[in-house]
Design a protein around this nucleic acid. Sequence first.
DNA 1: CTGTTAGCGCTTTCAT
DNA 2: ATGAAAGCGCTAACAG
Lengths: 356, 356
Amino acid sequence: MTTLSDVARRAGVSTMTVSRVINESGYTSRETRARVNDAIAATGYMPNGLARQLRSRRTKTIALVVTDIRNPFFTTIASGVEDTARARGYAVMLCNTYESEVEEAEYVRVLIERRVDGVLLVPACGASKSVRLLQEHGMPTIVLDRHLRGVEADEVRADSQAGAYSAVHHLTDLGHRRIAVLTGPEGVSTSTDRVAGYREALREACPNGECEQILSGEFNEASGYSMTREVLGSERRPTAIFAANNFIAFGATRALREAGLRIPEDMSMVVFDDLPPGWVMDPFLTVVSQPAYEIGTQAAELLLKRLAGEAPEGPRSIVLPSELVIRRSTAPPRPGLAPASQTNRATLSDQMETRS
Amino acid sequence: MTTLSDVARRAGVSTMTVSRVINESGYTSRETRARVNDAIAATGYMPNGLARQLRSRRTKTIALVVTDIRNPFFTTIASGVEDTARARGYAVMLCNTYESEVEEAEYVRVLIERRVDGVLLVPACGASKSVRLLQEHGMPTIVLDRHLRGVEADEVRADSQAGAYSAVHHLTDLGHRRIAVLTGPEGVSTSTDRVAGYREALREACPNGECEQILSGEFNEASGYSMTREVLGSERRPTAIFAANNFIAFGATRALREAGLRIPEDMSMVVFDDLPPGWVMDPFLTVVSQPAYEIGTQAAELLLKRLAGEAPEGPRSIVLPSELVIRRSTAPPRPGLAPASQTNRATLSDQMETRS
DNA sequence: CTGTTAGCGCTTTCAT
DNA sequence: ATGAAAGCGCTAACAG
């Protein structure tokens, strides 16, 4: 492996001069630069980033820690982060915790040891230990997607409560009263905020709260399935379901299909989270759409500003609006009032595909 | 930031002893170990990985470079890689090139500079430059998913040609003769191998090759859409489509829907690539399923063996079998022979959802 | 404009 | 079982 001094010797200059040429810092004469560049080209020299980072105390790397890399919501965030970071010369280390605090702790340890310049973190299970550890080690950290109570940290996320409110308000507007919400883990803000928005909207239509039907589980298909089974078996079956994320909706749809219930004739459905455009043909589900890409870009920008010392002092909290997109999975509660059903199930169709 | 010597001073030992305790290498007395561990706990010391790696010349990190992180096929590979690597104490750096050679080259540069221990690479556009560069720099590299002609390197992938053969054979078996294949970029082996399998199967039913209809594009939805439009507008419209990956199939489905054509009554469809279980309710598409997770685990295992010097000498080529999964998007070519259509479009439905 | 010196934080090597 | 010396490859700081 060729090193700086190999190049320096070959170019007949000091290592410092080579360093300056490589980093385009300080003054170097045209001619020297040319000689150095020739030597670099001739040897195929590539700087040792480890040495460089150790010395300069900057890794030019940020980390993005997400809870589920299989989720388009997070991969979309990731592309926002990446586009922003790379444009400014930063590499992104993508870490995946599968919503496990253990994995998260392990990754955080690795990130601290590697001395990444900063971290964007979606806290697994809404736990705050990792954020505290990062902060103790002086690592600029931004919390993504979720809010952590009792933690002073920058955060960037979408407005779950307002989004949920608009979703459920849409249902009550259509005449629904008996609406079940299927949500995620109890400690996670995206889960509880969506329930809060649900209650807020439902209380307006149903002041004494007797309409509420709240089920907590996990943000995955299996949980959506079992919560829906439970709801369908309950005494007063709801006329509409609000699924707090897409995987839950997915399980719910399966359970409904198995029960022979049609959407929206027999059951309306609103979902938190849309799919990226292009993954969906003729979208069918009425959804609350989060600006995932912008969450990524804004978070990365804020972090890079912090690293450059350009950010305002106290912790910033950026809450982006979510948007209700009304499509065809919602209808008034009475079967008689439902629109023609022909195409509805067909269009539920409109889901995703992959490539190799 | 506390360092080794801070800990050493505090424990009243030399830095070397602390190093031994941390790495559990060499001999240390019980008592010393206890004192050192106390000092570590008291200071919250975390080793500087950069210094460590610089000195020891091992980063305990491997990189996985994929062409599309949004694709479940690749995220599944990624989880196989991660599970294997982490079990052996390696971190995985996940890099995404979006099928761009420029991005790939940039990442490869970063990886070499960071001195990662090894690289698993899905070569963008089937280009071999990056692999060569990595090899020149002595970096153990394994090519994933695709075969590179003229490159001596370990490779792990699924059998595209045999998979495509079985898919198209299934169509000819059903009586189809006029079958169009919609494939990806011409330089990519997964693309060309699937066409080769297509031809192989089609020639058996249609020896003089007049049935062939081959379209090349990209592995994405937009390309699948436009290729399908082209096919539908052609003189002899096919009775079946073989989509060389899922995104292509997705675009194809949209084009068919817009044209008012039903699957499989008006057009049969076979697709290369399945979706991960749980993302699909009541799966509808007949697919060739690749063992994505195993590609990941086997590749990671092979790489780790190379790093440990345990692997056999020459380049290894691991080709895993693909499996035809017959579902309901294929039927005999005549409309009259098609099965009841009621549920078919509904079940195309069964696609994916996301979570936040 | 270029070079010298020192040292980032750790581990390898050798000594005791 | 522990320590001292050296140096991984680079750049900050200063000198000239």
